[in-house]
Computed example of a mutant assay.
Amino acid sequence: MELTIRNAHAGDAELLHQLGRMTYSAHFKHMWVSEAEMDEFIDKEYGLTELRNSLAAPDESWLIAETAMPVGFAKVTWNTPVPDSGMSGAQLNKLYLNPQETGKNYGRRLFESIIHAAREKREGYLWLEVMGANVRARKFYEAFGMQHIKDIPFITASQQSIVQILGMVI
């Protein structure tokens, strides 16, 4: 099936709300000790007010990947400092696919479109945070040449996890 990638607009807030809740839970539920904490995190990340504000922000871009229906999305924040590094660049905040749509090169195409957009904006550097336990995602990004920069803690009331910062010159 043909994949198209488009820029999201204000009218896509409800779609991103639904996709975000579904994909995050499907991919990461097993990493959370507390389902209530995960639900709170999802509500914060994919609440309609948050999404509407983000879609209107000039320094943030959302992309939607579609075949006959939406299959995934990504969010990028432009010109963002990399923590404790003195560098800045495009931060890939999110890149998620419907679990039934993984393994079809949609993630690769979505990531390549982000690299292309960052180069057009002359960002020079692309970075992201990935859960240390998410080995599959780390290998995906490392295959593009992203390198480990540092580890940072992700702490909730019931757990502590390691988040890895990866980055690459683009």
Rank of each mutant, 00 (worst) to 15 (best):
T102P: 04
S54E: 15
G72S: 06
A65D: 00
D43E: 11
W78C: 04
H116E: 09
A56T: 03
L95A: 13
H116P: 00
E37G: 09
L3M: 13
L126I: 15
E37T: 12
S161W: 07
G124E: 03
L95T: 10
Q160S: 15
N53A: 13
Y106C: 11
R6D: 12
Q18G: 11
E40G: 14
K104W: 02
Q164V: 10
F111Q: 06
W32K: 01
T80V: 06
A65Y: 02
A74P: 02
P70T: 06
W127D: 02
M31S: 10
E50K: 13
S61L: 15
A57M: 11
M168C: 03
H116L: 06
A10C: 07
D12K: 11
D151L: 08
A10D: 09
L48H: 04
S158H: 15
F154R: 00
R109S: 08
W32T: 02
I170M: 07
I170D: 06
S25L: 04
G89V: 09
G145Y: 02
Y46G: 04
V163S: 07
T49P: 00
H116W: 04
E37R: 12
G11F: 01
N105S: 14
D84M: 15
D43P: 08
V163Y: 04
I149W: 13
T156L: 12
A57C: 14
Q159I: 08
D39K: 05
E142V: 06
R109I: 02
E35C: 00
E14C: 08
Y24Q: 09
L55P: 03
D59P: 09
M38W: 01
S161N: 08
W32G: 04
Q147Y: 02
I114W: 09
